[in-house]
C-alpha cells in the first residue's frame, strides 16, 4: 500500500479537557499505487482534517499514517499538496513557483529546469512562464498549483477541494485536465470534494465520511474512463451516494443536540 491510514483519532480539544469532541474516530483507509481515491462528505465531517493529517501538518491523537510503510512524522516532499486557495508564492513567477520543489531538494539546475519546463507543458501553461500569479485566472493558478506539486514527483498527491474556488465551467474543464494528467503521470491521489458528480467522474474509489467522524463506506466506481456524467450507470452511482449522505445528514441532525449536551 502506498498510503495506509490506521485507526486514526483526532480531536482539536486540549488533552486536559473533561470531554473531547473527536472530529475523526477510528478512520482506517488505504490507497494503492496509482489509485485515485476521493474523500466525500458534508461540510465539517473532517475531510480537510484527514488530509492535513496525511500531509503531516497536524498529528493524530491515536493511530498512525504510513506512506510506503513509513510513519508520517511531519510534512515532506513525498506528499505533494494542492490547496483550494492555490497557495502560490506571489513573489515568484509561474516558472519559479514550479521550480521551487526541485530547487529546494537540490536537484541540479539543468535537470530542475528541464523538469519545470516539462510540467509547465503538461498543465498547458507554456508561454506563461514569466507571469506572476496575480495576473492569472483561477483555473490557471490551480494549474500552477498542480504542476508545482507534481514537479516534485511525490508518492502521493493530496488535493483539498482543488476546484472549490472555480466557476462551474472552469471546474468541469479542470476536472478533465486533472484526469488527463493523472492518466499520463499516474500518481496516487487523495482528492477531497463535496461534489458527488465530481467524485464519481474521477475516482477509482470513494470514501464516504459521516459527521460522526467515521467512514460511512467505501464505494468502488467500476466505470471506464472517460465517464459520461449523463449515462444511466453514472447517475446510479450519484443516486446511491446521495442516499448515503442523506442518511448521514438525518441521523446527525437527530444526534447533534445530544452530542452537545454530552460536552
Amino acid at each position: 500500500m502506498k498510503l495506509a491510514i490506521e485507526d486514526v483519532y483526532k480531536s482539536f480539544d486540549p488533552f486536559t479537557a473533561s470531554s473531547r469532541r473527536f472530529v475523526l474516530r477510528g478512520v482506517t483507509l488505504q490507497a494503492a499505487q496509482g489509485e485515485f481515491l476521493s474523500l466525500l462528505g458534508h461540510s465539517g465531517c473532517g475531510k480537510s482534517t484527514l488530509l492535513n493529517l496525511v500531509a503531516g501538518y497536524i498529528k493524530p491523537d491515536r493511530g498512525r499514517i504510513l506512506i510506503d510503510g513509513t510513519t508520517v512524522e511531519g510534512p515532506g516532499a513525498d506528499r505533494g499538496v494542492v490547496f483550494q486557495e492555490y497557495a502560490l508564492f506571489p513573489w515568484y513567477t509561474v516558472h519559479e513557483n514550479i521550480a521551487f520543489g526541485p530547487q529546494v531538494r537540490g536537484v541540479p539546475a539543468g535537470t530542475a529546469q528541464e523538469m519545470t519546463q516539462r510540467y509547465i507543458a503538461l498543465v498547458g501553461l507554456t508561454g506563461f512562464e514569466h507571469v506572476y500569479p496575480d495576473a492569472l485566472s483561477g483555473g490557471m493558478k490551480q494549474r500552477v498549483g498542480i504542476a508545482r506539486a507534481l514537479a516534485n514527483e511525490p508518492t502521493v498527491l493530496l488535493m483539498d477541494e482543488p476546484f472549490g474556488a472555480l466557476d462551474a465551467l472552469t471546474r468541469e474543464a479542470m476536472r478533465q485536465e486533472l484526469l488527463r494528467i493523472w492518466l499520463q503521470v499516474r500518481p496516487t491521489v487523495v482528492f477531497v470534494t463535496h461534489s458527488i458528480p465530481e467524485a464519481v467522474a474521477l475516482s477509482d474509489r470513494i470514501a464516504v465520511m459521516n459527521l460522526r467522524g467515521t467512514l460511512e463506506g467505501i464505494i468502488p466506481v467500476d466505470l471506464p474512463r472517460p465517464r459520461d456524467s449523463h449515462a444511466a450507470q453514472f447517475l446510479e452511482y450519484v443516486k446511491a451516494l446521495e442516499q448515503m449522505l442523506m442518511v448521514d445528514r438525518k441521523s446527525s441532525v437527530r444526534r447533534e443536540p445530544a452530542a452537545l449536551s454530552e460536552e
Binding site: Y57, G74, P75, G76, A77, G80, F89, F100, V104, R148
Partner: peptide, 26 residues
C-alpha cells in the same frame, strides 16, 4: 500566510529555505 509555509514544507523546503524564500520574501 501560513498556507505558504505549509506548501513550502510539503515541497521539501528546510527551515532555512522557508525563512529565506517565504518568510523574508513575504
Amino acid at each position: 500566510n501560513p498556507l505558504l509555509i505549509r506548501s513550502a514544507y510539503s515541497l521539501g523546503a528546510s527551515e532555512m529555505q522557508i525563512f529565506r524564500r517565504v518568510v523574508l520574501k513575504s
